[in-house]
Amino acid sequence: MPSALSSISADPSANLAVDPSPDLAAFRIAVEPYYRPVGDEIAVFEAAWRHRLPVMLKGPTGCGKTRFVEHMAWRLGRPLITVAAHEDMTAADLAGRFLLAPEGTVWQDGPLTQAVRHGALCYLDEIVEARQDTTVVIHPLTDARRLLPLEKRNEQVRAHEDFQLVISYNPGYQSAVKDLKESTKQRFVAIAFDYPAPELEAEIVMREAGADLALARILVAIAACSRNLRGQGLDEGASTRMLIHAGRLASGGVSLEAAVEAAIVLPITDDADMRRALNAAISACLP
């Protein structure tokens, strides 16, 4: 697993540095993150990159959205700044704020401003989780203006020519309560992600979990069963990520039944009846 990626919250030193190095070395991805293309998503992303169009990645959890961004950042040779959006995130958390230093107040760029100034890919993960006022901050960045107004500093940050904004958006959570504004949605080029076709998914599980093909195929069949239960009591089926976890457990010496139970069944549902039904279906998939 390549670990060159660091998110803002995981690296406090990057957060607090008053003036990070302009090349954002800590945010560069050195080793190619494994990504198996499913369709023409790489071509679409590259085309969007050429015109610096903002990109929205849609798809269920654990189907490879984040990995795809890492892969594209590596491919394009740009640093990647990832922000995991959460309910309490404010516009200041993204854009930056004044802090107190011995000599007085000091402006601290937020992750978005950093990316805008120095030309990085900025990836806002699960953007719908953030408060709606937060998403409005990105509006001037995502149209022809490409600038970020910092009203507290009375500054208009013109975007670096290599800056590109990527957001992810899980339609599974989409609801009347949490949904992107139309005005936000319509600024993006969207790429739809879904779980890969069975053969492809088996290949990915094999590669990532170090499992053999037979094991990978069984796991993929189990995942298909759980995905059929979406809306029948499960909110989401087993993701590719779960399969990889199960595959790692199973190829690490845990019995297949126990691995599937630990990595798929137990995390996915708390409902005993659902667990029983899922186990019956899984039992049919196991040789």
Partner: peptide
């Protein structure tokens, strides 16, 4: 019934 419905839905889509 509810459990059977789920198992059948899981296996056959």
């Amino acid at each position: 019934e509810a459990g059977l419905t789920r198992v059948l839905a899981a296996l056959w889509g």
